Simulated assay, not measured.
Amino acid sequence: MTPGVEIDADRIALAVTALPHVAGLHSGRFGEIATLLPGRRIAGVRIRPGGITIGVTGRYPATVTEIGDGVRAAIGPVDHPVHVHIGDVAPAAAIACLDTTSGLPRP
């Protein structure tokens, strides 16, 4: 994002969830990482005047540094600090065992 351009929570969510080191967005322990829009809520992305917080579930075996750097690169340059909260890490075995259509464990 170019500095001075409006920050789009939907675009951020799409860019971050497309990363190979991110299993999904994470809204924090109490659901506090979210953007409230008319009629809906984007969990895992919080945009405030003092900064942007992105909550993610990382994908093992990525390191915290790889996940954080990837998230910041996906967002691009912004004129706010970007904080990355890694709320969980999905183990490799759990990822391989999930049904991609429902997200539930395969029988």
Score class of each variant (00 low, 15 high):
Thr63Val: 11
Ile95Ser: 12
Val84Ala: 04
Ile75Thr: 01
Gly87Glu: 14
Gly70Met: 13
Asp69Leu: 15
Ile54Phe: 05
His83Gly: 00
Pro81Arg: 03
Ala73Gln: 15
Thr65Phe: 04
Gly87Gln: 09
Arg48Met: 09
Pro81Ala: 04
Ala62Gln: 12
Gly70Pro: 14
Gly70Arg: 11
Ile47Cys: 02
Gly58Met: 11
Gly58Leu: 12
Gly50Asp: 05
Gly68Thr: 10
Ile52Glu: 01
Val64Ala: 13
Ala94Arg: 07
Ile54Arg: 04
His80Gly: 01
His83Tyr: 03
Val78Arg: 05
Glu66Tyr: 00
Pro61Asp: 09
Arg72Leu: 06
Pro91Val: 14
Ala74Phe: 11
Ile52Val: 12
Ala62Asp: 12
Asp88Tyr: 15
Gly68Gln: 04
Tyr60Val: 11
Arg72Phe: 09
Ile54Asn: 03
Arg46Lys: 09
Gly76Asp: 04
Ile67Gly: 05
Ile52Trp: 03
Ile67Glu: 07
Arg48Gln: 15
Thr63His: 11
Val64Trp: 08
Ala74Leu: 06
Arg46Gly: 01
Ile52Asp: 00
Gly87Cys: 09
Ile52Gly: 06
Val84Phe: 04
Thr63Trp: 12
Thr57Tyr: 07
Gly76Met: 02
Asp69Asn: 14
Ile86Lys: 12
Thr63Arg: 11
Val71Ala: 11
Pro91Phe: 08
Gly51Gln: 01
Ala94Trp: 08
Val56Trp: 00
Val82His: 04
Ala92Val: 12
Ile75Glu: 01
Ile86Ser: 11
Gly51Ser: 00
Pro49Arg: 09
Ile47Asn: 07
Val84His: 02
Pro77Glu: 12
Pro49Lys: 09
Val56Arg: 01
Val64Ser: 10
Arg72Gln: 10
Asp88Met: 05
Gly68Trp: 06
His80Phe: 02
Thr65Asn: 12
Thr53Ala: 02
Val71Gln: 08
Val84Ile: 03
Asp69Tyr: 14
Pro61Ser: 09
Gly55Asn: 06
Ile95Gly: 04
Val64Thr: 14
Pro61Cys: 10
His85Met: 10
Gly55Arg: 01
Ile86Met: 08
Thr63Lys: 08
Val89Phe: 15
Ala90Thr: 10
Ile47Pro: 04
Gly50Asn: 04
Arg59Thr: 06
Thr57His: 07
Gly55Gln: 06
Ala92Cys: 03
Arg59Leu: 13
Val78Gln: 00
Val78Gly: 01
His80Ile: 00
Ile47Arg: 11
Pro49Trp: 06
Pro77Ala: 13
Ile86Trp: 13
Ala90Leu: 15
Pro49Asp: 03
Pro91Glu: 13
Val82Glu: 02
Gly76His: 02
Arg48Thr: 14
His85Ile: 11
Pro61Asn: 09
Gly87Lys: 05
Gly55Leu: 06
Ala94Thr: 03
Tyr60Asn: 12
Ile75Val: 08
Ile52Thr: 03
Gly58Glu: 08
Gly87Asn: 15
Ala73Arg: 13
Asp88Phe: 14
Val84Lys: 09
Ala92Gln: 07
Thr65Leu: 14
His85Cys: 10
Glu66Lys: 01
Thr57Ala: 15
Ala93Pro: 07
Pro81Leu: 01
Thr53Phe: 01
His83Val: 05
Arg72Trp: 06
Ala62Asn: 13
His83Cys: 02
Ala73Met: 13
Ala73Asp: 13
